Simulated scan of single mutants.
Amino acid sequence: MKIVVDWDRCEANGVCVRAAPEAFSLDEKDQLSVLVENVTPGLRAKVEQAVRECPRQALALSED
């Protein structure tokens, strides 16, 4: 399972970072980075929470 970001929608407001800091980070210029290539089962619940809570609906999960 992979994280998909719609970069046109993402405002880098940090909601995903608070929900899943193991998977997302913001740099000093407030640019979002995805830290994991594949979502592990142990991280899945946090990433799903980040997807649900994204105020711009810029995140999704893909089975690819």
Rank of each mutant, 00 (worst) to 15 (best):
E11T: 14
F24M: 01
A12P: 12
A12G: 15
V17K: 03
L59H: 10
A20W: 01
A45G: 06
Q49K: 15
N13Q: 05
E28A: 12
V15H: 00
E37G: 14
R56D: 13
C54E: 08
V47L: 06
Q31L: 12
K2R: 15
V51P: 08
D8K: 13
E63C: 02
Q49F: 05
R52P: 07
L35T: 11
A19V: 02
S33G: 08
E48T: 08
N38D: 13
L61C: 08
Q49N: 14
D30C: 09
V36K: 10
N13G: 15
L32E: 04
C10L: 04
L59T: 13
M1F: 03
E11K: 13
R44Y: 10
R44F: 05
S33N: 13
A60Y: 01
L61G: 12
T40V: 00
E11Q: 12
I3W: 00
G42D: 12
R52I: 09
V36P: 10
A58V: 06
D30G: 13
P55R: 10
Q57K: 14
P55T: 11
G14K: 05
C54W: 02
L61M: 13
A12I: 05
A50V: 01
I3S: 06
D8G: 14
P41I: 04
A20E: 01
R52V: 11
D30K: 14
V51I: 14
E37L: 15
R9G: 05
R9V: 06
K46A: 15
V47W: 05
C10V: 11
C54Y: 03
V5Y: 01
K2E: 08
L35K: 15
N38K: 12
A23H: 05
F24Q: 02
D27L: 07
D64V: 04
K29N: 10
E28D: 15
A50K: 03
L32T: 05
V5D: 02
D64N: 08
Q31C: 09
D6P: 12
S33V: 01
E22K: 07
V36C: 11
V36D: 05
P41N: 08
A23E: 04
S25C: 09
E28L: 07
C16Y: 01
L61H: 08
P55K: 09
A60N: 12
M1V: 15
L26H: 00
E37F: 03
T40D: 08
E11M: 11
L26I: 01
E28V: 04
A23S: 15
K29M: 08
R56N: 14
A12D: 07
A20H: 04
